[in-house]
Measured scan of single mutants.
Amino acid sequence: MQRVNMIMAESPGLITICLLGYLLSAECTVFLDHENANKILNRPKRYNSGKLEEFVQGNLERECMEEKCSFEEAREVFENTERTTEFWKQYVDGDQCESNPCLNGGSCKDDINSYECWCPFGFEGKNCELDVTCNIKNGRCEQFCKNSADNKVVCSCTEGYRLAENQKSCEPAVPFPCGRVSVSQTSKLTRAETVFPDVDYVNSTEAETILDNITQSTQSFNDFTRVVGGEDAKPGQFPWQVVLNGKVDAFCGGSIVNEKWIVTAAHCVETGVKITVVAGEHNIEETEHTEQKRNVIRIIPHHNYNAAINKYNHDIALLELDEPLVLNSYVTPICIADKEYTNIFLKFGSGYVSGWGRVFHKGRSALVLQYLRVPLVDRATCLRSTKFTIYNNMFCAGFHEGGRDSCQGDSGGPHVTEVEGTSFLTGIISWGEECAMKGKYGIYTKVSRYVNWIKEKTKLT
């Protein structure tokens, strides 16, 4: 034993070699072989497995989906700052455009905790909710729209109204504003409101030439003092309507412009014939205590009207009353817009006519005020429907199939267009061939041609 100890002390290297040989010859039971080890760690190889990531292109799944990435790591994937920024906006807080917040056709661009709407022409605001041009839906104005110097929408209202708090709607500024039905039992019968379409306001006024200088022999019209197929109006439903009495009662109609003036057809009036105007009328054979009678003290036909040349060209006249009318729910003026808007309103496509005229061709006159909704007829169809001249200051309205029309005794009465609950004068009943005849239409004086003249002559002093 002493000898062994001496050998170990003198030859430590020998001992180490012996131990190493023993270990190498022993069977290893701690580690699995290569094949079995792979069965336990069965993990798919990654895209760049075996390579240094710093030297390969980034992978979106590896960089940002398996674990949260930084902007720089995302930049490695896209290799483009702009594309990385677009991805980053949604990656950080989701897609803010998912709810489609942009209105009126706006395009949404996502941002971090926010979004941006790219608005089409005519709109602005956070969600493109603000109209900035009158060309689109009248700028959301209830009545009139004008573009300011910086191309912003400025709404306005006709006389007797003021802008509401929203700067879009119009509200009454006087007790009985024009064009409004205020009798409670008839307010439910107000005709369907007309909503502004998209309009090209630059070209809204037709490029028409008034044929002022045409000389033409007097034409022989049949029954051209021209509501057939209409309905009984309720008291106060058309408070701007008046009836004219002269040699015979209810020979023509008219509309209240203001307390002192009536507008009617020029062919209705004769110099030297006494005319009485009755406002607030409903049943011409009954006294309903809503009527107001006034005498006409002055007749002003349009300066281009000449019955000797043509009885229905420039067929418009103004009547001055001896005493002002007292405005109330049964006696209310009709609204008159400017030339541009009167023309736009007419193009809405349908209007209402009213009167006490004959209820059928050569038949009896109506006792109760009649009204009828009539569609506008395109000019080409209008011209083809008659052998008589249709001037540019006239328009056609009615039904091709016949059966409904204005008729004798309705002449001078109103053709009105309702705009968001307020009625505007767009025409004056003038003439036609018979009444409600198939293929024939009622012919009306186009008020847009005469609004400046009306307003100039009827100013209240």
Results as ranks from 00 to 15, higher is better:
residue 198 D to S: 11
residue 323 E to M: 14
residue 28 C to P: 03
residue 133 T to P: 15
residue 8 M to Q: 09
residue 25 S to L: 15
residue 450 Y to F: 05
residue 32 L to E: 11
residue 196 F to L: 10
residue 363 G to H: 13
residue 66 E to A: 10
residue 269 V to E: 01
residue 360 F to Q: 08
residue 336 I to L: 11
residue 338 D to S: 04
residue 421 G to I: 02
residue 240 W to N: 00
residue 222 N to V: 09
residue 399 F to R: 02
residue 177 P to V: 03
residue 173 A to E: 09
residue 233 A to R: 05
residue 330 Y to T: 02
residue 75 R to P: 06
residue 372 L to Y: 11
residue 58 G to T: 14
residue 154 V to G: 04
residue 378 D to Y: 03
residue 191 R to M: 10
residue 409 G to L: 06
residue 432 G to N: 06
residue 105 G to W: 07
residue 194 T to D: 08
residue 220 S to C: 15
residue 447 V to Q: 00
residue 310 N to K: 06
residue 119 C to S: 03
residue 331 V to P: 00
residue 194 T to A: 06
residue 158 T to F: 03
residue 193 E to A: 07
residue 301 P to F: 12
residue 289 H to A: 05
residue 70 S to M: 08
residue 339 K to A: 14
residue 187 S to Y: 07
residue 299 I to L: 07
residue 350 S to C: 12
residue 199 V to C: 15
residue 54 E to P: 06
residue 107 S to D: 07
residue 456 E to H: 04
residue 256 I to F: 00
residue 191 R to V: 08
residue 67 E to S: 04
residue 60 L to K: 14
residue 416 V to A: 06
residue 273 V to R: 08
residue 296 V to N: 00
residue 5 N to E: 07
residue 270 E to N: 10
residue 213 N to S: 08
residue 15 I to A: 04
residue 352 Y to L: 13
residue 86 E to W: 10
residue 406 S to Q: 11
residue 318 L to P: 01
residue 127 N to G: 11
residue 20 L to H: 02
residue 252 C to D: 00
residue 450 Y to V: 01
residue 146 K to V: 07
residue 374 V to F: 02
residue 247 K to G: 12
residue 389 T to I: 15
residue 305 Y to P: 02
residue 396 C to Y: 02
residue 171 E to T: 08
residue 147 N to D: 10
residue 353 V to Y: 07
residue 348 F to T: 14
residue 356 W to L: 13
residue 101 P to G: 08
residue 208 E to F: 04
residue 337 A to I: 02
residue 425 L to W: 00
residue 40 I to V: 08
residue 442 G to N: 11
residue 371 Y to Q: 11
residue 204 S to G: 05
residue 181 V to R: 06
residue 133 T to Q: 06
residue 69 C to P: 11
residue 312 Y to M: 10
residue 128 C to F: 02
residue 436 A to S: 07
residue 340 E to V: 12
residue 77 V to F: 07
residue 449 R to A: 15
residue 98 E to A: 07
residue 360 F to H: 13
residue 388 F to Q: 15
residue 77 V to R: 15
residue 61 E to V: 06
residue 281 E to W: 10
residue 165 E to F: 08
residue 96 Q to Y: 10
residue 452 N to W: 04
residue 432 G to D: 06
residue 85 T to H: 03
residue 454 I to H: 01
residue 228 V to D: 08
residue 277 V to N: 00
residue 432 G to I: 05
residue 54 E to D: 12
residue 429 I to D: 06
residue 13 G to D: 03
residue 57 Q to Y: 04
residue 266 A to Y: 02
residue 163 L to R: 03
residue 224 F to N: 08
residue 364 R to Q: 09
residue 181 V to I: 08
residue 156 S to T: 11
residue 96 Q to E: 13
residue 14 L to F: 11
residue 116 E to R: 04
residue 281 E to L: 12
residue 137 K to M: 10
residue 417 T to L: 01
residue 204 S to A: 04
residue 203 N to S: 07
residue 162 R to V: 08
residue 420 E to L: 05
residue 417 T to E: 00
residue 44 P to R: 03
residue 235 P to T: 06
residue 351 G to F: 01
residue 68 K to T: 15
residue 334 I to T: 01
residue 283 N to Y: 11
residue 200 D to H: 03
residue 185 Q to W: 08
residue 71 F to G: 15
residue 450 Y to R: 01
residue 208 E to L: 12
residue 161 Y to K: 00
residue 288 E to S: 10
residue 430 S to T: 14
residue 183 V to T: 13
residue 360 F to C: 07
residue 202 V to S: 10
residue 373 R to T: 13
residue 252 C to S: 01
residue 219 Q to C: 14
residue 321 L to H: 00
residue 403 G to P: 03
residue 377 V to Q: 14
residue 274 K to M: 04
residue 368 V to R: 15
residue 21 G to I: 11
residue 148 S to L: 12
residue 313 N to W: 06
residue 441 Y to M: 11
residue 295 N to K: 10
residue 152 K to A: 09
residue 452 N to Q: 13
residue 49 S to I: 12
residue 368 V to C: 12
residue 49 S to W: 06
residue 371 Y to M: 12
residue 208 E to W: 06
residue 15 I to K: 04
residue 400 H to C: 10
residue 121 F to D: 05
residue 308 A to S: 12
residue 319 L to M: 13
residue 390 I to L: 14
residue 47 Y to L: 07
residue 81 T to E: 07
residue 154 V to S: 11
residue 284 I to G: 11
residue 343 N to K: 03
residue 341 Y to F: 15
residue 214 I to H: 07
residue 361 H to S: 08
residue 13 G to H: 12
residue 414 P to S: 06
residue 214 I to P: 07
residue 444 Y to S: 01
residue 70 S to K: 15
residue 383 L to S: 08
residue 429 I to V: 12
residue 456 E to M: 06
residue 5 N to M: 09
residue 375 P to W: 11
residue 287 T to A: 10
residue 427 G to P: 00
residue 274 K to Y: 06
residue 156 S to Q: 06
residue 243 V to Q: 11
residue 233 A to I: 09
residue 216 Q to V: 13
residue 304 N to C: 15
residue 228 V to G: 04
residue 47 Y to Q: 06
residue 225 T to D: 05
residue 246 G to C: 03
residue 245 N to S: 06
residue 280 G to D: 01
residue 449 R to V: 15
residue 180 R to C: 03
residue 459 K to D: 13
residue 380 A to W: 13
residue 252 C to A: 01
residue 29 T to Q: 08
residue 220 S to L: 10
residue 141 C to L: 00
residue 280 G to F: 02
residue 249 D to Y: 04
residue 104 N to H: 15
residue 329 S to L: 04
residue 346 L to T: 13
residue 441 Y to Q: 03
residue 183 V to R: 10
residue 400 H to G: 13
residue 457 K to Y: 12
residue 125 G to D: 03
residue 421 G to M: 04
residue 272 G to L: 03
residue 228 V to M: 03
residue 430 S to F: 03
residue 405 D to W: 08
residue 125 G to I: 02
residue 316 I to R: 00
residue 120 P to N: 15
residue 23 L to N: 00
residue 446 K to Y: 02
residue 264 T to I: 02
residue 188 K to E: 11
residue 114 S to E: 11
residue 48 N to V: 04
residue 379 R to A: 09
residue 279 A to G: 03
residue 157 C to G: 00
residue 409 G to K: 14
residue 405 D to H: 12
residue 386 T to F: 05
residue 279 A to V: 03
residue 32 L to W: 09
residue 72 E to K: 15
residue 35 E to T: 11
residue 335 C to L: 00
residue 260 K to M: 06
residue 26 A to I: 06
residue 162 R to H: 07
residue 373 R to A: 15
residue 326 V to H: 14
residue 251 F to H: 06
residue 340 E to G: 14
residue 384 R to Y: 13
residue 68 K to W: 15
residue 16 T to N: 02
residue 249 D to V: 08
residue 232 D to F: 07
residue 275 I to D: 01
residue 243 V to R: 12
residue 417 T to R: 02
residue 337 A to C: 02
residue 362 K to H: 12
residue 338 D to A: 08
residue 73 E to D: 15
residue 379 R to D: 15
residue 410 D to E: 15
residue 161 Y to W: 08
residue 85 T to S: 06
residue 54 E to K: 06
residue 55 F to V: 14
residue 176 F to S: 05
residue 421 G to F: 03
residue 449 R to W: 15
residue 160 G to P: 01
residue 27 E to K: 03
residue 121 F to R: 06
residue 336 I to M: 08
residue 38 N to G: 11
residue 301 P to I: 05
residue 253 G to N: 00
residue 212 D to G: 08
residue 261 W to M: 02
residue 210 I to H: 05
residue 188 K to C: 13
residue 326 V to W: 11
residue 229 G to K: 10
residue 413 G to C: 13
residue 338 D to K: 07
residue 443 I to R: 04
residue 131 D to I: 05
residue 225 T to W: 12
residue 176 F to Y: 10
residue 362 K to Q: 04
residue 75 R to D: 15
residue 371 Y to N: 15
residue 238 F to W: 07
residue 11 S to M: 14
residue 173 A to D: 13
residue 444 Y to N: 02
residue 80 N to C: 06
residue 143 Q to F: 02
residue 35 E to K: 06
residue 141 C to Q: 00
residue 168 K to R: 02
residue 87 F to V: 12
residue 381 T to F: 15
residue 30 V to T: 11
residue 353 V to C: 06
residue 328 N to T: 14
residue 89 K to E: 03
residue 255 S to T: 12
residue 362 K to M: 13
residue 180 R to A: 04
residue 384 R to L: 12
residue 324 P to W: 02
residue 273 V to D: 09
residue 270 E to C: 05
residue 57 Q to E: 05
residue 213 N to M: 08
residue 343 N to I: 03
residue 192 A to S: 11
residue 434 E to N: 13
residue 183 V to M: 05
residue 150 D to Q: 08
residue 414 P to N: 11
residue 448 S to D: 15
residue 129 E to F: 05
residue 255 S to E: 02
residue 411 S to R: 10
residue 170 C to F: 00
residue 211 L to N: 08
residue 285 E to T: 11
residue 295 N to I: 05
residue 164 A to W: 03
residue 149 A to E: 11
residue 62 R to P: 14
residue 227 V to Q: 09
residue 122 G to H: 09
residue 366 A to I: 13
residue 102 C to L: 01
residue 71 F to A: 15
residue 111 D to V: 14
residue 379 R to P: 15
residue 437 M to V: 14
residue 122 G to I: 02
residue 293 K to E: 09
residue 315 D to K: 01
